[in-house]
Design a protein around this nucleic acid. Structure first.
Lengths: 148, 148
DNA sequence: ACTGAAACCCATATCTT
DNA sequence: AAGATATGGGTTTCAGT
């Protein structure tokens, strides 16, 4: 499942994790390659599924979601379909991780207000018992792991 | 703190959250705007801090990090500097949220192996008591909230 | 697998409405 | 805020190494 990546591949991944909208020729300059070679590398990283996409990061507060919360969900039973449907519908749920341990799901949700957060948690509480923590601050900027 | 966004701004944000590397002219086509108008909109979203960056998403398994875990950390006291330093250094820590509630920090970490994960948790355990859950699956793809 | 050249496409700036 | 136009730079393809 692991793909063999050399130094240049890692350099490309690093650059694109920080600034995904630089041009391929700019990328080529930064990793010391010709533009066509860099374009080919990027294509390979995309087709092999190493790079899965490019996404804009937004300031949630500025777009009207000043609250961020972590909701842990103890989910009894094994009927996961209804929860999946909720995740599809509610775009306020930004991330959902199913984990080992007592709290089966850890969710990251954005809310417009405490009332909104309350309503979201109520919806989730329909599936099991929840533990909610409101996020003071996101300590890290967006980034990925380095070369292992 | 909130910025006023109209339908076109939201359409641009949506497009860039899904595909951040499309050209401005392609974006213009998708949101029914001229290229120069679209470019101007994007510039405004960037300078007002609505869009904070563009980032490549990678398949962690394919780059050698087959394990993902959620670590919750009970952090007694108020000396947060040493933890901040660890976050800077250890790029395996992908995200760190400081929250209300008993578990002050919720971290998302990537690991190359169980041994590696154990070492990471040991490092974190130096700061307080930890609760770790290994992630079975990330249920949602990368996305952002919709218009409130 | 990378380079370099050519043709084509896109981005950016400026001006006009 | 949108459209037109021009120019410089970026992307893509292909032959050559």
């Amino acid at each position: 499942m692991t793909v063999n990546l050399d130094d240049v591949d890692w350099a490309i991944i690093e650059q694109f994790q920080r600034e995904a909208r630089i041009s391929v020729s700019e990328l080529a300059r930064r990793v010391s390659l010709s533009a066509s070679a860099a374009a080919e590398r990027v294509r390979r990283l995309e087709t092999t599924g190493v790079i899965t996409g490019y996404h804009a990061a937004v300031d949630l507060t500025k777009i009207g979601y000043p609250l961020l919360a972590v909701v842990r969900l103890k989910y009894p039973g094994n009927r996961h379909q209804p929860l999946r449907r909720l995740l599809e519908e509610r775009h306020e749920i930004l991330e959902c991780l199913r984990t080992t341990g007592e709290d089966c799901y850890t969710l990251k949700v954005a809310a417009t207000s405490m009332e909104h957060l309350e309503a979201l948690v109520d919806e989730l509480a329909g599936f099991g018992s929840t533990t909610t923590g409101v996020v003071y601050r996101q300590t890290l900027p967006h980034r990925g792991p380095a070369r292992p």
